[in-house]
Write a protein that binds this DNA or RNA. Structure first.
Lengths: 193, 193
DNA sequence: CGATTCTTTGAAAACAGTCAATCTGTGTGG
DNA sequence: CCACACAGATTGACTGTTTTCAAAGAATCG
C-alpha cells in the first residue's frame, strides 16, 4: 500500500528513499478506508489531515449562496486530498471532501508532515516541486476560466484531465468548469458531430 | 532600498535576519529600474529573474487566440513579479510582464534564490509560507471565477485588492476578472446608486 | 492644443442559465 | 424476473446576462 506513496515521492523529488526513511514514513501515515459518499472532511470542520489517495476518487465541494452544490476539485490516485486553506491555517473549512468511489487513503497531519520534511530531504524537495506545479496548474485554471468559452474549457478539461472524465458525473464536471449541467450536455452534443 | 525586502522576509517568516544574512541578500539581488510600459518579460523569452517590487506597479498579460490582450495578474509593492511556469521550468513564456508605473525592482535568478534559501532559514520559511498563501489565494480566485457573476466578482475584487483598483485602467481589471470593459463599466454604474 | 488612451453608452446578437419534462441506466426489493 | 425508485443525462422553450460592435464622451500626456 505504501508502494504508491514511495513511488510518488521519488518520482517528484527525483531521488530515492533509504529503508530507514521508508520506515519513518510508514510510521507517520495512517491508512484509512472510505466508502463511496463518505466524507473525509465536513463543512465547518478543521481539515487536520491530508490524504494521499492510494486507490479511489474524491471531490471537494461546497454549497453556494442559493444552497446549490458546487464541485471545485477532483482527486484520484496519486493526489493529495485536502482543503489547503483549512489544512494550512487550521480554520474551519467552507468545503467538504467526499469519497466518490470506495477509497484507500494514507493520512497525515500537517505537523507530522512538516516534521518528516525536516528529517527526509526527499520530502522537502517533493514539497517544493509540488508547490511549483500546483501554482502553475492553478494559474492555468484561472486563465482558462477567465479567458475561455464553455466549449473551450471542456475541451481543455478532457485533454488535460482524462482521468476525471469517466469517473465523475457530468453535473459535477459542469460545476467544476463553472457552467450548468445543461450547457455541458449541449457542448458535448455539439462536439460529437 | 533593501529595507522593504528585509521587512517583507521577516514579516512572512516571522523571524529576523542577521547582519551577515542581510549582506548575503544584498549581494544576491540586482536592482533594476523600469519606466512605465517597459517590459520586464517578453512573450517567448524565458523568465530568468523574479523581481521584488520595491516601488511601482506591473501587470502580466498575453494575447489570446483572436489577438486580444488579456491581463491575468497585477503586481504592486511587496509582490514578486514573475511568470511562475517559465521561471520554474525554464520554458519560453506565453506571457509578458510590463511595468505599468515607473518601477523599482530587486531581481534574482531562481538558482541564486534557492541557494539563498539553503543558507538562510528565514528565506526557506518565507518560501513555504508564500507558497501556502499563494495556493490559497489561487483557489479562491478559481472559485470566484467559476461560481460568481460579474457583479459579485468585481465586488470581491475591490474588497480584496483595493491596492489595484485605482492604479490600473478598467479595461485591464475587466480582463483580469474575465469580463469585458463594457460590462465592467455597467456593473460600476449599477453599484454607485 | 492635438493625439492617444480610457470610459461610457446604445442596440443587436450570442451565449449561458433556468425551469420543467422526458429519457436512460442502475440497483433494489418484492 | 419484474416493477419501481433513483440518480444522471438530455431536450425544449424561455429568460436573463454578457458580448459585440460602433460611436461618442472624458481624461491624460507630450
Amino acid at each position: 500500500m505504501f508502494e504508491n506513496l514511495f513511488n510518488y515521492i521519488c518520482r517528484y523529488a527525483n531521488c530515492s528513499l533509504t529503508i530507514e526513511e521508508q520506515e519513518l514514513i510508514k510510521n507517520a501515515f495512517t491508512p484509512k478506508k472510505l466508502r463511496k459518499r463518505q466524507f473525509f472532511l465536513q463543512e465547518g470542520d478543521v481539515n487536520r489531515y491530508t490524504g494521499f489517495i492510494v486507490k479511489g476518487a474524491m471531490r471537494q465541494c461546497c454549497f453556494d449562496a442559493k444552497g446549490v452544490e458546487q464541485t471545485v476539485n477532483f482527486f484520484v490516485e496519486d493526489y493529495w486530498a485536502d482543503e489547503r486553506e483549512s489544512f494550512t491555517l487550521m480554520t474551519p473549512s467552507k468545503y467538504c471532501i467526499e469519497a466518490w468511489e470506495d477509497t484507500q487513503l494514507l493520512m497525515i497531519t500537517r505537523q507530522d508532515f512538516l516534521d518528516l520534511a525536516v528529517r527526509i530531504p526527499c520530502i522537502s524537495e517533493m514539497f517544493r516541486i509540488m508547490d511549483d506545479r500546483h501554482a502553475i496548474a492553478n494559474q492555468k485554471r484561472v486563465n482558462l476560466s477567465i479567458g475561455c468559452s464553455a466549449e473551450k474549457r471542456y475541451e481543455e478539461f478532457t485533454a488535460n484531465h482524462p482521468q476525471f472524465v469517466n469517473r465523475f458525473p457530468q453535473h459535477q464536471i459542469a460545476s467544476y468548469l463553472g457552467i450548468t449541467k445543461e450547457t455541458l450536455s449541449r457542448v458535448r452534443k455539439q462536439s460529437v458531430r
